[in-house]
Amino acid sequence: MAIDTRGETAGKPSGEKKRTSPALFYRQVVAELRKVIWPTRKELVTYTTVVMVFVLIMVGIIYGLDAAFGWAVLQIFGG
């Protein structure tokens, strides 16, 4: 079948979808997961630690800004 310029297959209505079975889908998922390079335990612990430290730093910055702006609003508008 020829492909037209819009990327659709010639001869098929554009609204028609290709049907796949659940078994085929499962096999394709398993095949894709086998291609993944999974991290080692050491890498996973390192990545998790880096993310947790980053999140804690961001929480501290947001808390500090919130407290500073809250104090400034109270100074300006009283309360």
Rank of each mutant, 00 (worst) to 15 (best):
T48G: 06
G78W: 00
G7M: 01
E32F: 03
A23T: 09
P13I: 12
L65S: 03
G11D: 02
L56C: 10
K12F: 14
F77M: 02
P22T: 05
V30Y: 06
L33Q: 03
G15K: 08
L56I: 13
F54I: 13
A2D: 15
V36R: 00
A72C: 06
V55T: 10
L74F: 10
F54P: 10
L24C: 12
P13F: 14
E32W: 06
R41I: 08
F25D: 05
R34N: 04
A72M: 06
G78P: 02
V73L: 14
V30C: 05
F25M: 10
F25A: 10
F69A: 07
M58N: 10
T46H: 14
Y26K: 15
T49M: 15
K17G: 11
A68R: 09
I61M: 04
W38F: 01
T9I: 05
G7T: 01
E8W: 15
K42H: 13
G7I: 01
W71Q: 06
D66N: 08
K18H: 10
M1H: 13
L44H: 15
K17N: 13
V36W: 04
G11R: 00
M58D: 11
K42A: 13
I62P: 00
A67T: 13
P13T: 11
D4E: 03
V73H: 11
A10Y: 06
Y47D: 14
P13N: 14
S14P: 03
A68F: 05
M1N: 09
F25G: 05
R6M: 05
I76K: 02
L56R: 07
Y26G: 07
W71A: 15
G11C: 00
L65Q: 04
L24K: 15
F54H: 12
